[in-house]
């Protein structure tokens, strides 16, 4: 694997922590857990044109973040891959910013094609975009990301039923299976049972990605999913991650779902994450 891509995750984690620390709000836990997924997608696998950004995305792969609360990791990867200036990360959640608490098209931020935050809606939007691609003969792929807790929303299963029944085989939906949600572990809040079996029974091909915080494994897993598109079934990637991955005291707990680190915690966390690409200026 190209050595330089391995430098990116640490910088994304620094961005995430510095962004949420600056405004003492936001969702670092899920963001940190999905860093390798976003690096794999935006720096390796997605066929996309960051500049100039085109809303219609014809002849591009599209990505929809359905669990919009992990906006810090999306904003970081969009900025770092050229959608907008890295300095703009400093405006996250502040007044008059394009980097709203949850992602939106409303303020014209390049890289965002639909608002998300109210959970469960992104898969339906992605299916519409996938149908749009099929109708116009565009062979590119539509990707989504969902939280495992988000699967408790009923609309997800309306969408999953449609995608399986209508053979939306240009869609790859990845589930961030970190086993956590705001109120606790998914097993405590609402046990999800066998997620893979659920998607299988809805007519999806299911791929298990067991090391979602190992970049090479994520690249391999998503590449495998891409190789399975066009075969009459939508693809579901169940990606095991650790919420808060990359910082010892934040890992594997729901505690950091929506809590920002204080000054001391930030310093402690940043010590564990080398500055590889240069921090954005404050």
């Amino acid at each position: 694997m190209n050595k330089s891509i391995e430098l990116i995750p640490s910088q994304l984690r620094r961005d995430i922590l510095r962004m949420v620390h600056a405004v003492q709000s936001g969702h670092p836990g899920g963001s940190m857990g999905c860093v390798e997924f976003f690096v794999a997608l935006y720096f390796k696998l997605l066929r996309h044109v960051p500049e100039p950004f085109n809303m219609n995305g014809k002849n591009e792969d599209l990505f929809f973040l359905s669990n919009g609360h992990i906006s810090p990791v999306l904003y970081s990867v969009l900025a770092r891959s050229g959608y907008f200036p890295i300095e703009e990360l400093n405006t996250f959640r502040k007044i008059n910013s394009r980097l709203q608490g949850h992602p939106t098209t409303h303020d014209g931020l390049p890289g965002v094609r639909v608002a998300s935050g109210s959970l469960g809606q992104g898969m339906s939007v992605a299916i519409g975009a996938a149908e749009s691609k099929k109708l116009s003969g565009d062979k590119n792929i539509v990707f989504t990301l969902h939280g495992d807790g988000e699967l408790q929303e009923g609309q997800i299963w309306e969408a999953a039923l449609y995608a399986g029944a209508k053979k939306i085989d240009n869609l790859i939906s990845t589930i961030d299976a970190n086993g956590q949600q705001i109120d606790g572990s998914t097993d405590d809040v609402m046990p999800m049972g066998n997620i893979g079996a659920k998607f299988s029974s809805f007519g999806w091909e299911v791929i298990h990605l067991n090391q979602g915080n190992k970049l090479s494994e994520v690249i391999n897993g998503i590449q495998k999913a891409i190789g399975r598109t066009g075969n009459g079934k939508p693809i579901c990637v169940i990606m095991k991650t650790e919420m808060g991955a990359g910082v010892d005291f934040m890992s594997g707990t729901h505690k950091w779902h929506g809590i920002a680190p204080n000054d001391e915690q930030l310093a402690d966390a940043l010590k564990q994450l080398p500055e590889t690409l240069g921090d954005y200026p404050i």
Binding site: Q121, S124, A129, E131, G154
Partner: peptide, 25 residues
């Protein structure tokens, strides 16, 4: 080919409609 029967699933229909605009429909 331009008609999408979603079954009795209105939330998914509304989301799909939003997605279909991406591409110009």
């Amino acid at each position: 080919e331009r008609f999408f029967q979603t079954g009795i699933a209105e939330a998914n229909m509304i989301g799909m409609a939003a997605g279909l605009t991406i591409g110009g429909f």
